[in-house]
């Protein structure tokens, strides 16, 4: 084998290796994107577009590496010799001839399999297989797609309630303002005597039952046709809603009334 053939073979081998690696990485990306797109309700085949872009970026990055440098790094006895021979192909002197012969002798120990990242590529292929199984399960068992509305609802429900003013600790001080409460001395409890705000010591157990919304898809049937009333009701009137009335005990109402009276009297 002469040097030109040697370098051609070397470049072709590295081309195949790099192509395979980039192809496998792009494959992983494509399946991951397909699963994500499926869950988001987007057509899974659209994952091919970002995969192509990823493939191109990776390929450009891989192409910038110098195969001769890779071989020299793996085989120190060829350090700087391969590149020198590649740049001085014409046998212009006995030194160049000797160098070329050296390279031809030492290149026989180079194995292309050294540059194949076995562990990494095996892991990538296993990941691809696993992702394919996941994709299969998702499509077989019809895993529900993400429901954005429900997610928003869940988030808003889980936000903590705003604290009421009655729950403030007794040593909070008003900053002052139009209400005129700034004249109250700091040592006084603005909520009044503690006896006014005693709560019952009874312990209550509250149990909240969760409502289930299990739906069996097999029970879903076509809705029955229903006739709606055509006419409007003849009489339209309003009534007080009982719900709007506060069911506060009379003594508690008097408590609050007296409290404000006391504050005003003290002010005088």
């Amino acid at each position: 084998m002469n040097l030109k053939q040697l370098f051609r073979t070397l470049n072709a081998s590295f081309f195949s290796l790099n192509f395979f690696e980039v192809f496998v990485q792009a494959g992983v990306m494509m399946i991951v994107l397909a699963i994500i797109f499926y869950l988001l309700g987007v057509k899974p085949w659209l994952a091919i577009l970002p995969t192509i872009a990823y493939f191109i970026v990776l390929w450009v990055k891989k192409s910038q590496s110098n195969p001769l440098l890779e071989v020299e790094r793996a085989y120190p006895e060829l350090h700087e010799k391969l590149r020198t021979v590649n740049d001085n192909m014409a046998p212009t002197s006995e030194i160049v001839l000797e160098l070329q012969q050296d390279v031809l002798d030492q290149i026989s120990s180079v194995e292309i399999s050294t540059f194949y990242e076995t562990e990494k590529n095996t892991k990538r292929i296993m990941v691809i297989m696993l992702l394919c199984i996941i994709l299969l399960i998702i499509s077989l068992f019809n895993v529900p797609k993400l429901n954005y509305e429900k997610i928003a609802e869940t988030i808003s429900e889980s936000l903590p309630a705003i604290k009421s003013p009655g729950n403030r600790p007794p040593d909070d001080v008003f900053a002052g303002g139009a209400s005129g409460f700034s004249d109250i001395s700091v040592t006084e409890d603005i909520y009044g005597a503690q006896t006014f705000a005693d709560l019952d010591e009874q312990q209550q157990e509250i149990k909240i039952n969760s409502l289930g919304y299990d739906i069996n898809i097999r029970d879903i049937k076509q809705a029955k046709p229903q006739n709606f009333e055509e006419g409007f009701p003849q009489e339209i009137f309003s009534e007080n809603a009982e719900v709007s009335q506060d069911k506060i005990a009379k003594e508690h109402q008097d408590l609050v009334k007296n409290y404000f009276k006391k504050i005003v009297e003290e002010e005088k």
Binding site: R83, T84, V85, N86, D87, N88, T92, S93, V96
Partner: peptide
């Protein structure tokens, strides 16, 4: 003068 040198060097 005939000792070869790589382009990147």
């Amino acid at each position: 003068r005939q000792v070869p040198i790589a382009d990147d060097i």
